[in-house]
Design a protein around this nucleic acid. Structure first.
Length: 216
DNA sequence: CTGACGATTCACT
DNA sequence: GTGAATCGTCAGC
């Protein structure tokens, strides 16, 4: 599907994308879902204002056996309750008192798998993203890293539990396919407390994207 | 009720 | 490389 004829980028994109459905999120292999999400589009639409970006970095959290997961060992609290819902809901929590981290819940009810979306490349609504972030110009730090990304897209903890097949926050496929050579897995970021599980290759990135977090 | 701390980011040395 | 910011959550008393 060829498009991107100059300035009509926005229209072309919204005409051709297809919202990801429940079946996508309810699959049992969270690693596969995390990998498949690379190249998909994350969209927010609040009060008629749309912002969207192409996902370039994700991390899988593999349920009750994963020491890095909030649901490790079946841990079930008010905060993590959403992780135990059926796939396709947003799980958003506050990190370090400042950052709102956006995850998608996967698998069926009572299996608390999730994928953290860590970075996108801005596609739609850059001006809105700049307003929200208080930044003067588009720069990789606008949507690089989970805290920055959520801020630019206007995602807050109050959106936790939202159904991602709805119209406020959703993900979509516009036919873009990442170059398999650029799709890499690495250990996850910031989960040193997880011991051996911190070494698992559960992070997926689009190699070469300036929006992928971490050092160069 | 209390204290410790985090799936981070940024300013500063 | 180091440390501060900042607050909801959670375990423990």
């Amino acid at each position: 599907m060829k498009n991107l004829s100059g300035s009509s980028k926005r229209t072309d994109l919204s005409l051709h994308w297809q919202k990801l459905d429940k079946a996508f999120y309810e699959r049992s292999d969270v690693l596969e879902i995390a990998r498949d999400l690379i190249g998909k589009i994350l969209v927010t639409r609040f009060n008629g204002v749309t912002t969207a970006g192409r996902i370039v970095e994700t991390e899988a959290y593999n349920g009750v056996t994963d020491k890095a997961s909030h649901a490790y060992n079946g841990r079930r609290t008010r905060r993590t309750e959403t992780m135990y819902a059926r796939g396709g809901l947003a799980y958003i929590y506050l990190c370090y008192g400042i950052h709102h981290l956006f995850n998608v819940v996967t698998n069926v009810e009572n299996i608390p798998h999730a994928v953290l979306i860590r970075a996108v490349e801005p596609l739609i609504g850059q001006a809105t993203m700049l307003e929200r972030s208080g930044k003067p110009a588009v720069h990789p730090t606008l949507t690089k890293g989970p805290g920055n990304m959520a801020r630019a897209l206007g995602i807050f903890t109050r959106h936790t539990g939202l159904d991602l097949t709805g119209n406020e926050i959703f993900m979509a496929d516009d036919g873009y396919l990442p170059d398999p050579q650029q799709l890499m897995s690495t250990p996850r970021i910031g989960v040193d407390y997880a011991g051996a599980d911190a070494l698992l290759p559960y992070r997926f990135i689009l190699l070469g994207s300036p929006f992928v977090s971490g050092k160069k």
